[in-house]
Simulated assay, not measured.
Amino acid sequence: MTKQIELIPVPKEELKGFKEELKEAFLKGLKDSFDHVENAERLGPIPSDEDFEQSVNSRDSVVRQLMLNGEKIGGVVLTINERMHRNEVSFLYTVASAHGKGLGTQAWHAIEAAFPSTKVWELHTPYFEKRNIHFYVNKCGFKIVEFYHRGNPGPHEGASQPKSDEEYEFFRFEKVISSP
């Protein structure tokens, strides 16, 4: 019998392995999106070490492993704002062996259930990640609310100069949770 996906805290001593798994999953998505591996790898590690460290070390950060029947199938880094109830998904991934089985959708439902006071979920994903866009819009109920690019840099404004247009081109998604 299949159990529900559980969100288990990631101990500090396991964060390095968590980061490597996350990077591996994101690199696979990047490689799947580009014809040539060298095109994917020229963008550098995704996420950058700096982005990862900033996300997991923020005051409101929640870092969880996604577990199914005692097996790790992925992970999530969230920013939970208890006061505003507007929460952000910094990183969400599933391991390759979990793809195409509905486990990502089940994981998203587990995340929502773990934070029932959330009024709005927000996240960002690159323009080329068609699999992510399909997942968030068609499976999880998010809406695309903004497109960031050189003319509308959004969260990149004031950051170090990106190397390419790809680093500017992101969608911002929101999911407004309706009251029961």
Rank of each mutant, 00 (worst) to 15 (best):
L30Q: 09
K23D: 09
R42H: 07
P47C: 06
R64Y: 04
V56F: 02
K28M: 13
F26Y: 15
R64N: 02
A25K: 01
D49Y: 00
E71V: 12
E24D: 14
A40R: 03
Q65V: 08
F26A: 08
S48D: 03
V62H: 03
L27M: 14
E53T: 06
D32H: 08
D35G: 13
I73V: 10
E53S: 07
N39E: 15
G44P: 00
L43H: 11
L30T: 14
K23M: 13
K23Q: 15
L66R: 02
L68T: 04
K72E: 14
V62E: 06
E53L: 08
K72C: 12
R42N: 09
D51N: 13
I46K: 11
V56P: 00
F52V: 03
F52R: 00
E21G: 12
S58V: 10
E20A: 09
E41C: 05
N57I: 02
L68Q: 03
G44F: 00
G44Q: 05
V76A: 03
D35L: 10
M67A: 08
D51I: 07
E41N: 09
S48R: 04
G29M: 10
R42M: 12
E71M: 07
H36T: 06
L43N: 08
G74Y: 03
E24S: 15
R59Y: 14
D49S: 06
Q54A: 13
V63F: 01
G70Y: 03
D51V: 10
K31Y: 01
I73C: 06
